[in-house]
Simulated assay, not measured.
Amino acid sequence: MVAQSVTAEDITPGVPATGNAVPQHPPSLTALVGLLADDMVQVNETIMARMTSDVPLIPQLAGHLIASGGKRMRPLMTLAGARIVSANATVSSVEAIKLATAVEFIHSATLLHDDVIDESNMRRGQNTANALWGNDASVLVGDFLFARAFELMVESGNIDVLGTLSSASARITEAEIKQMTIAGNPDTRLEDYLDVIEGKTAILFAAAAASGAKIAGGNEQVTQAMHMYGLNLGLAFQIMDDALDYTADSAQMGKNAGDDFLDQKITLPVILAYQKANDEERGFWHRTMGDGNFAAEDFAKAQSIMAHHKAIEASLEAATSYANKAKAALTIFDAPNQAELAHALREAAAFAAFRRT
């Protein structure tokens, strides 16, 4: 199944997205987590079982990351895809549990590698694995988790699912490499940014949701619907994450505020602010994000420039637009026994574009 690529036309800065008003009751993952709680118990048990190794450092380091929290949204996508197809089931199949575990391992492996590349020392409010055990150990344990993920995929016994998740893993790596090539270039095209976040984040959401539907026997229409739901939710999630780096504080995010700025990462708020910048402001972006020449007050100045050009507001509108597209992908799930889960998935999409952490 080929992903539908996003383009710059999907983002119209300054035009309010439908449904962008602050809801009376902020959306959350509570409903989705509650419906899939029994499945997630099995996923967590499988995670613990498959992290075991005769080399003590492997479960120690991997367990540090996996046990540190996180929303587990990606395995939830797999479980939801399986459950919405077999809507009468109360617990997903063994194969779906294994796939959800594989998805979490793929995600965890990429986080370990990312923290090494970014030289990060904080994630989810704790010291990163590379800060505690070093880069070599983090990379190798990440490789171990990738290997475990592929074992679980093979055990699922579905070659199409194996192809979907394998392709997603390759796309993630390609996107991370492309992100490195555009780092420090504030004049990066919007299309290149969107290609990066589709590959590094959204494609795993999409593959997770589609694989769950496929392993449960879903047809092409159902599988494609879950793919598009996951893709757009993932785009909303990553755009919000990029915006939060310039708006939330370290305690809220569980990482250092402004890390993307200091790492010279080109994200949507930067691109939008640069597009509207005057010559002096463009000089600022080239000195900081381009040359890596930072002064003490530069992060505050970056926030000020973004505020002046409403770059954060436009980013939030873009995230909401993608969340609405995710909701729209669920319209085929209109059977009475699918309604509760479909509603929870819509709220999860709204959460992705509304979250503050």
Rank of each mutant, 00 (worst) to 15 (best):
L99V: 15
H25Y: 01
R124M: 10
H107W: 09
D39W: 05
S108G: 06
L36K: 01
G63M: 11
A87Y: 13
P27N: 02
T7W: 05
H64L: 12
A129V: 14
T52P: 00
M51I: 11
Q42W: 07
S120H: 11
E95M: 07
E95I: 02
S68Y: 04
K71Q: 04
I84L: 13
P27A: 03
P13K: 09
L99W: 09
L35M: 13
D118F: 11
A49D: 11
V85K: 04
H64Y: 15
L79I: 14
L57P: 01
L99P: 02
A31M: 07
A62Y: 05
D10M: 03
A109R: 04
V85E: 05
D38R: 14
D39A: 08
A49V: 06
P59A: 13
A89W: 02
G81S: 09
T78N: 04
S92N: 13
S93V: 10
P26M: 00
S5C: 05
I106H: 01
D39G: 05
A62G: 15
I97D: 01
L57H: 07
G70L: 01
A31I: 00
M40N: 10
S92I: 00
S92D: 09
S86E: 15
T12L: 08
A8L: 03
R72Y: 06
K98I: 02
I117L: 13
G125D: 01
D10R: 08
M40T: 08
M122G: 03
Q4A: 13
A131S: 15
T101H: 07
N44E: 15
T110L: 08
A129T: 15
V91L: 15
S86D: 15
T46I: 02
P75H: 12
L57D: 12
A102L: 08
N130H: 07
G81N: 06
I97F: 05
L112Y: 03
